[in-house]
């Protein structure tokens, strides 16, 4: 048996007593079944028997279980947290899989075969050799509109999505524009309305017609949903208030990029601030290629 061989090889090379990628094989099979079902019905939330993971809920337990079920020994893993490779969540999960799966890791988007992400889609376009795994806190887009889970499931089943537009209506009546800036609801393949996890709405256009497989895992809520490659994804809007993928009106202060999503960084107590790429890998690669922003120093200069 192939899987068994993989396991034995891993066992002999690692002193740890973990099964490959932490979860036992039966659990991974269960998660893979859920993933296959999710891919077969784009945007539909598939229940799965989420396991207790060695991290608190809210830290990506859903994403980690999906990653564990997707990883193969020859995979290269990248983990990003709000676009960055070097923040606590990203570092911890990367280390977790280095230890329990022994897979190669990278910070370069183009080199990774599995990318686990929290709240961003990388700026570098994805390819058909990659799987993007999202960490999802609340999979139900109707959650704060309709308190009953029985009712929301019925609404999904009967395609009753008028309420989603009530939320957008409220946005416009209060703020003059659709103020929802993240977790912006989308309609998948003309059928299910889906919460794309709290990615900025700037990333919404990247969800659709993407060559990579995108899988969403919500650990506490025990739901997996997915976008197969090249799926049609439409952000909900009004005819007279069309969807707009917004970002800060600035260029990256370090690499000068005008097309990437920016983080605002407060630099002093006098209201000074700078905007930098939220995708650290993208910013680093641009600086390495010689791009310099208003406040950036060229690569290699202190």
């Amino acid at each position: 048996m192939l899987e068994r061989d993989v396991f034995m090889k891993f066992e002999s090379e690692n002193v740890t007593a973990y099964n490959f990628a932490y979860l036992d094989e039966q659990t991974k099979r269960m998660i893979r079944r859920a993933i296959l079902k999710a891919l077969a019905i784009p945007g539909y939330q598939v229940p799965f028997a989420s396991r207790e993971m060695p991290m608190p809920y809210g830290w990506g337990t859903g994403g980690v279980q999906v990653s564990a079920a997707c990883l193969m020994p020859e995979d290269t893993l990248k983990v990003i947290d709000q676009g960055a490779d070097d923040t606590t969540n990203a570092v911890s999960i990367r280390k977790f899989f280095e230890k329990t799966a022994g897979v190669a890791t990278t910070e370069e988007t183009a080199r990774a075969s599995v990318i686990q992400t929290r709240h961003r889609i990388p700026e570098t376009p994805l390819t058909d050799e990659q799987i993007l795994v999202y960490q999802v806190p609340i999979p139900e887009p109707l959650r704060f509109l309709e308190p009953s889970e029985v009712e929301t499931r019925k609404m999904h089943a009967l395609e009753e999505y008028g309420l989603m537009h009530v939320k957008l209506y409220e946005d416009i009546s209060r703020h003059g524009a659709i103020a929802t800036a993240y977790a912006y609801p989308v309609k998948v393949a003309g059928r299910y309305v889906m919460d794309p996890s709290p990615i900025p709405k700037f990333d919404n256009p990247k969800l659709g017609d993407c060559p990579a497989i995108q899988i969403f895992g919500a650990g506490r809520e025990q739901r997996i949903y997915a976008l197969p490659p090249w799926t049609q994804v439409v952000s909900l809007d009004f005819e007279d208030h069309p969807f707009e993928a917004s970002k800060a009106e600035a260029d990256c202060a370090l690499c000068g990029a005008g097309d990437s999503y920016l983080d605002e960084v407060i630099v002093d107590d006098e209201g000074g601030r700078m905007f930098v790429c939220s995708d650290t890998d993208y910013c680093r690669a641009r600086r390495a290629a010689g791009h310099v922003g208003a406040q950036g120093a060229p690569e290699g200069v202190a």
């Binding site: 008028g162 309420l163 209506y169």
Partner: peptide, 27 residues
């Protein structure tokens, strides 16, 4: 009624539920 939603949103909900997608008209 939906107590957390504005009066306009409450009235507009049924319109949006049957497919109205023009904010100005709904309002």
């Amino acid at each position: 009624l939906r107590m957390g939603v504005s009066a306009g949103g409450n009235v507009g909900e049924r319109l949006m539920a049957v497919g109205a997608r023009h904010y100005g008209d709904i309002r």
